[in-house]
Structures are given as C-alpha cells and as structure tokens.
Design a protein around this nucleic acid. Structure first.
Lengths: 296, 296
DNA sequence: ACCGCGCGTGCCGTTCAATGAAATTCCGGC
DNA sequence: GCCGGAATTTCATTGAACGGCACGCGCGGT
C-alpha cells in the first residue's frame, strides 16, 4: 500500500457507467446548445450538460467524428452541418416548410410584413418558417424557436385543434400572456378557443414590443387533423385590420389541400402529395404518439 | 442438460457488444434516412442501418424518447422535430441562412428565378438555402441536399477557394460533369478555378434538364476565408446573360461584410456580427478541423 | 519570476449498460 | 386455419463506457 493515509485508497476508475445510457448523454451534450449559446468550449459543454470533463471529451470527439458537432475557427464546439443535413429530412420540420414555402410567399406578397408557419411540439409551438420584410415590425420569435400556445396566433390555432385532454392539461396551468405578463383566465381562454374553432381563425393583438395584430389559420394534413398553423403578423392600426382573414384562410386551405387533406373536396390542381404514403393504419397502442405527452 | 442434441446448447445472448460504439450505431439509424426514404418501418430501419432488429428497436425507442425520431400517423419512423430544432442552431447551416436570407431576397427581387446559398462539407457542397420562383426553370438540388463541387457554380467557387492540397485531391479523381456525363479534364478544371479566383465569379452553363446559366460568387467570413457561395440560376439565352454579375458580386460582398469579413474596409452600416465571438486562437494541433478530410 | 487557476487531455482499473440469438406475440393475407 | 413477416420480449455474456486522477500549458495576478 503506497497510500499513506489509512483511508480508502481511491482506486482508479471509480463509478463507471452507473446511470444514464450513452445516447442520453450524447444528446445532453447536443441539447446544451441554445439559441443564446451556439458555441461552447469543452469545459462549458461539460458543465452545461452535467457530464464530467473526461466523459464530455470522449463523447464530443465521437460526435465530432460523426459531424454532429464541429469546431469553429476559434476551437469552440458548435452544432455540426451534418446534423443539420440530417434534420432537413424531418417531415414536420423542413419537410413541411418545403411544401409550404410557395404558399407562404404568396401571402407575403400580399402583406409584405411577416408570415409564420408553426407546428405543435409538446406544450409549445415550434416556428418552422418565417418570412419577414427587412423593415417589418419586430417579431419575438426565430425559426427553430418555441412560442407559447396560449398567447400567440399560431399557438391558439394549434391549441384549439388539439385533443380535449391536452387542452385541459394546458388550461389547468397558471397561464400568463407572454410578453406583457397579464394573467389569462381559463374561462376566457376556453371561450377564445371555441371562437377559433368556430371561425377557423385566431386573431391576436399584442402591444408589448410594438402594437401588432396576428391572424392565424389551421393547416390540415392527410388525415384531416390539424398539423400546423399559418399566420400573418402586421402592425396594428394599419389600413387592413382583419381584411387579411380571407387571404390567410384561403392560403391555409390551399396548403392543406396540397398536403393531401380530404377537406374541401375540390377536384383541382395536380396536388401531388409531398409526404410518404401511409400504408396501413397504426394501432396507437402503448407507444406514446408524437403528440401524446405534454413534456417538452 | 436439458438439450437433447449433444451439440452446443446455443446459449441466449451470444455475441455481445463486440464492435462499434453505441453512438455510431444510433447515428447509423439516423443516417439511414435519405431524401428519397424519409420514413421507414423498424425492419427497414434495421436492414438499412445494418443493425439487428432487436438492437434497432432498442435504439429507435431511445431516439423516440429523445425526440430525435418520431412515428408518423402510419407508425413509420421519421426524423423528429426535436432534432430539427437542435440542428437549427448549426452556425454553418441555419445560422448562416438566417443572416443571408435578406440579402438573398434582394437578389431574388432582381431575377425572380433561383437564388442559391451553399457551403462546402467534405468533397461536396451542401445547399443551405434556395429561393425559387414557382414558375422558374428546373433546379436539380434541394435544400439540405448535396451538389458536386466541380460542375456547379457554387461548387466551383467553393473549390476554387479551398486549400490547394484539397483541390489536388479532388483533381486527382476522375471527374464527370454531373447531369450530362461529360468527362472533365483536370487541366481545364484548373484553368477554370484560376479564372474563378481571378474574376471572383463562377459562370456555369448546363443544358441537361433545361438550358440554364448560373453565376456564383464567394462569401467571406470573419477570418476572411471563403465560408459559402452565393449564386443565381437563370434560363440560358435570356436577355441578361451575365449582366447579373455585378448584382451577384455586390450581394455576396454585402453578405460578407455582414458576416464580419475584414475585406472591403468600408466603415459602413452597424453590421453587428451574428456569430459567436472568437475568444482566443486555436492551436489546430492534431485534431482534424472541419475542413480537413475529404471523407464525407 | 513565481504562483495559482482552469482548461484540454491521456491514462487505466472497474463494471454495468449494451448486445443479439432465440423465443414469443402480433397481424394480415390467403 | 395456417403461413410469413414484422414487432417485441427475454436473458446470459462481456467489452464499451465511465470518471477520478495527473500532466502540461497559457494566462493573469503579485
């Protein structure tokens, strides 16, 4: 025994592989990156992901090799191009955007302000695409970022058409209008959601960083469920208050048709379906579907 | 011994964990998806990734839990939205696009055909963004897809400004013009690359799916290296042959400036740098940098 | 000059998470 | 009712993953 102090000699590799599976660890490294933290040193990465430096290095190296991470010119780690390439195959992300972009551009021509496209993921909306004029009013949200369901146009549309059970879970929370901080009454929100369903539109005004009005409409997918929300955002008080409604509604419907929605049975344009063909119906058994959990 | 036949009793778990690390396996599952194969059943996933069904299931489940994979309405596996969200933080992917989009739109206004933005990854170019008129001529490439370096406008620009060693490796290969199948002589390509460097532009005509002309220019980054290529694609024989050159060049330069390029020392616009600030120079020791290998 | 700190990295003994063949269940078609 | 393929569970085995420790380096303070 070389160790002088009689206590435990502290053997080399102590606590090996005791907990989380490797993939979770690797993912923890990746998710340590955020919009405000797009590059990190190894030490930052280690701390932010709760991984010991030694392990973080090993994982980071492997991710580097796979192209999931890259190193900037300054040596800091960043999300890799290869991961972006891969992710561009996500049907609900880039896939949806691909189909929607021409329609969004049509809408953009009309308003020359903002056009948004969002899908629901967990208890939030995820901004899939945004077209914005350079001189447009401020928007709070970036593509790839998350929006609250209860205080945005697209969010309300997505929430209004979600399963009742999910809505209840959201309504059970204490909700606050996002930028302003005004509390939302569940009853009022319920009424709003009913109105959104009835009219097929959500109209939201916000004042905080600047007075704007958003008009949003649901986008239906192949099985007629609501898969996304389309919205324009214009400065409040402009000449066109909600004269935009027909345009937004029409564009959302056109996009829905192009996604294979059985609604609006018109026999029109070619409308080749852009998504992989369904083959047989899925049991939906004990596997939690994409939309099932609230957990982010 | 309950086993009647005297031979080896074929114990349960035979060949355990003998080879590839887990992360590589998981990544193999993800990279099994392609543009023409955006959704797969478990069996397909297993076959395409070379992973035994049992293992594929275990990994797929974990990836599902993490949101890297999702299941479509038909139960087939697809790339998940969460992965897309993560990947939207890739500086060379979506990050670059974010900065470039307004400039691309300016260029789009002028031509109303196609505007492309690509970066180099390994021995190919990766299309980061594409703006296209609905009635524009055919383009072969989709956003998130790869283009050959030696027979596209953006590719030539990226190749021309790559390290000499890398160029040599590319030139050593037998090269063929992409859609047409015409072989490229290394000498001619070298001459072309020199011309691209001299003029700061690449002009490429192709006839195959339709006669078009591409005019591409380099985009410089913070350290003045070429980080991307910007290009317009218009039908050949149109009124504007290469009258587009000044516009493309000017737009590329404006974008470069906005990326912090020290070139064109104008003291102009605010030009807040959109990328994380470098802190100290990086040794570049034995770690292969992002651009080092040709391997994809 | 000296010291201390933190970061990136290599080392290595320990051990549990990962593994995949086989068995089982589930479905759809015939 | 029976067959074939897919999805899923089981389980004995073991090497891939783990993380504490130590080293070297660059930087800032004194």
């Amino acid at each position: 025994m070389t160790n002088a102090s009689g206590a435990s000699p502290a053997p080399r590799g102590r606590r090996p592989a005791h907990g989380e599976p490797v993939i979770d660890r690797a993912f923890a490294l990746l998710t340590a990156f955020t919009a405000t933290r797009r590059s990190m040193t190894l030490a930052e990465l280690s701390r932010a992901s709760g991984t010991p430096p030694s392990t973080a290095l090993r994982l980071a190296r492997r991710l580097l090799q796979l192209g999931a991470l890259e190193r900037g010119a300054d040596g800091r780690y960043v999300i890799g191009l290869r991961l972006w390439e891969l992710a561009s195959l996500a049907p609900r992300g880039h896939g949806l955007r691909e189909v929607a972009l021409p329609y969004m551009e049509d809408l953009y021509e009309a308003t020359h302000q903002h056009v948004l496209l969002a899908v629901r993921d967990g208890a939030e909306a995820l901004l899939v695409e945004r077209l914005s004029a350079r001189d447009a009013v401020n928007v709070l949200y970036r593509v790839g970022g998350r929006l609250p369901l209860h205080s945005t146009g697209v969010g309300l549309v997505l929430l209004a058409h979600a399963e009742a059970q999910f809505q209840d879970r959201i309504l059970a929370r204490p909700l606050v209008h996002e930028p302003e901080g005004v509390p939302v009454s569940p009853a009022a929100l319920r009424r709003t959601l009913a109105e959104v369903r009835r009219t097929g539109l959500a109209v939201v005004e916000r004042s905080e960083p600047g007075p704007v009005v958003a008009v949003a409409a649901p986008v239906h997918g192949g099985d007629d469920s609501v898969v996304a929300a389309l919205s324009v955002v214009v400065p409040a008080g402009g000449a066109e208050p909600r004269g935009l409604s027909p345009a937004v509604r029409a564009t959302a419907r056109a996009l829905s048709r192009s996604l294979g929605s059985p609604r609006s049975a018109a026999p029109p344009a070619p409308a080749r379906d852009p998504f992989p063909r369904p083959r047989r119906m899925w049991p939906m058994a004990r596997h939690r579907g994409t939309f099932a959990g609230i957990a982010r």
